[in-house]
């Protein structure tokens, strides 16, 4: 068993940290044209939200928040598997990783 001896950091520090990580994820989604990088930045945003939920769960002494983090991880794993399968399919058809090659889908 891992020993449990540490005090918790103030909640506001986690709030700021998770906001910064989420904003970096948003910048990445808008900044990159490589669709693998875009999916990675979406993962970054999901992790920021997970960390915030876990910090609130720890500060309120409630374990159900951690269960919620588990379910978000489950959905994130399924989302990555499907998303990367779609990306491989698009790469096979268009021969590029440029996300703007998908603009031909419009009308």
């Amino acid at each position: 068993m891992i020993p449990i001896a540490m005090n918790l950091i103030n909640q506001n520090a986690y709030l700021i940290l998770c906001t910064v990580l989420f904003s970096i994820g948003i910048i990445g989604v808008l900044f990159r044209r490589n669709f693998i990088a875009v999916i990675m930045c979406i993962e970054l945003m999901l992790n920021a939200v997970n960390l915030l939920i876990a910090s609130y769960a720890a500060h309120s002494g409630n374990a159900e928040g951690q269960i919620m983090v588990f379910f978000i991880m489950v959905v994130a794993a399924a989302e990555v598997a499907i998303g990367l399968a779609l990306m491989v399919l698009i790469y096979r058809n268009t021969g590029t990783t440029d996300i703007e090659s998908l603009s031909q889908l419009k009308g």
């Binding site: 891992i2 986690y14 993962e43 992790n47 876990a54 910090s55 991880m73 794993a77 990555v80």
Partner: peptide, 22 residues
């Protein structure tokens, strides 16, 4: 950070799922 938050099992699952699988 999860370990700092006393969420030890969450930390292990995070390493296995994200760093290991995804």
């Amino acid at each position: 950070h999860y370990i700092m938050l006393n969420a030890q099992f969450l930390a292990i699952v995070h390493i296995i799922v994200y760093s290991g699988a995804i």
